[in-house]
Computed example of a mutant assay.
Amino acid sequence: MTATIVSPRLMRIGGGSVGQAAEVLGLFGLSRPLVVTDPWMVSSGTVERALLAPLRAAGLRLEVFSETVPDPTDTVIAAGAAMLRGGEFDCLIGFGGGSPMDTAKAMAILAAAAPGTPMRSFKVPAQADRGLVPVICIPTTAGTGSEATRFTVITDTETDEKMLIAGLGALPLAAIVDYELTFSVPPRTTADTGIDSLTHALEAYVSKRANPHADSLALSAMQLIGRHLRPAYHQPRNAAAREAMMLGAMQAGLAFSNSSVALVHGMSRPIGAHFHVPHGLSNAMLLPAVTEFGLNDALPRYAEAARAMGVATREDSDEAAASKLLEELRALNQELGVPTPKDYGIGGNRWEGLLPLMAQQALASGSPANNPRVPSEAEIIDLYRRVYA
């Protein structure tokens, strides 16, 4: 098979690397960034202390767009793209969790299009290969992997659809991956983003679009995340665990960017769009049941994933190893306090009423087609029912 491999041109990785942002921009001749972040990063002083002040000290002229929301919407992207078009910016810096990074990517794509073009014009199967300016991503959580991927996910406010947008226009020019930025991340976010990154790695590895390059990254990511997610959750200042989780999340992002995600993500996006469940949390709600659904169709791969995570050994048969993987995913959800949709507060009648639409949106995203066992619409509805309570 032939695989097309993409990644940022430069990745600066390690504790304290955010302080080298001006140097990274200088390597590409960039000096007029528009920094995309969220209101909390501004109000807490985090973005000022970690990024803006050092950039100003280095003589860079910058402005800030901080209107991002947890599930980036097409209306926010339009506002950001208008600001980008109206200024003399030569790059975007996405600083924060997945939402600011995804927002920056989508802003670059939309700003390169003719004025008035809707964001939905770029959803898959369209290819969003052009951005107005390059994007540099600086993650502050260990989860989305957006700093290393050719994807962004944006909600269409007219249809409540989470749109997957893919292409080289969404691929960052550079990433700065500093695990010290995650020390203050609360346990709930650590858990949700951690399981999100585990899902990226696992789905990339079992995907029908898997390839040897992505496989090596996915296995390394699962090894790091499998051993360090619990310590990072229980001991937020554990530097070794935080560093391993940040590296694992980045590798998982590279893995699925060069392979794909699958059924978990296809089913997760509608939950986030209709019920405003954080993306990593909705992945976690689905991961055990969806893994079980496709287990026998990629048994050797799921078994190898269990061994990489350290929950099975070479002496275990594939059947035993895959069974241990399911046990681990369920145990991880329990220890990290992952609720069911019902326990999260989603009403049963509304959940049931939206199942046909959510199943259709999941299939339309294309991700379920990459699953080892490709589901029908009826099977997706059944899986939604199984995970509800």
Rank of each mutant, 00 (worst) to 15 (best):
T144E: 03
M101D: 12
T117P: 06
K123S: 07
L132H: 14
R85G: 04
G98D: 05
P139E: 10
R150K: 15
S146V: 05
G143S: 11
A79Q: 14
P115L: 10
G131K: 04
G116L: 01
F122W: 13
A142Q: 05
P118W: 01
M107K: 03
A112K: 04
K105R: 02
P134V: 12
S121R: 02
V133M: 10
T144Y: 06
A81W: 06
M107A: 01
R85T: 13
A104P: 07
T144C: 07
I77D: 04
A79S: 14
V153A: 07
S121P: 00
G97N: 02
M107Y: 05
G96L: 03
A82M: 08
A111K: 01
A81H: 08
I154P: 03
T141M: 11
D90V: 08
Q127K: 15
G80C: 04
M83R: 15
F89N: 11
I154D: 06
A148R: 07
F95Y: 15
I77Q: 05
V124W: 10
P100G: 10
D102Q: 10
M119K: 02
A111H: 02
M101H: 08
T141A: 12
F151V: 10
V135D: 05
D102P: 01
A142E: 03
A81D: 05
L84D: 12
C137A: 15
C137R: 04
G145E: 13
S121N: 00
G96K: 02
T152H: 03
A104R: 01
F151C: 10
R150M: 14
D90L: 11
V133H: 09
T144P: 04
G116I: 02
T140N: 06
V124E: 14
P115V: 09
A111W: 04
I109P: 01
P134Y: 08
I77R: 03
V135F: 11
G131H: 05
V76S: 00
M107H: 13
I154H: 07
S99H: 00
T144I: 07
V135I: 15
C137V: 09
V153N: 09
S146M: 02
D102A: 11
S99P: 00
E88K: 12
I77V: 15
A81V: 08
R120N: 06
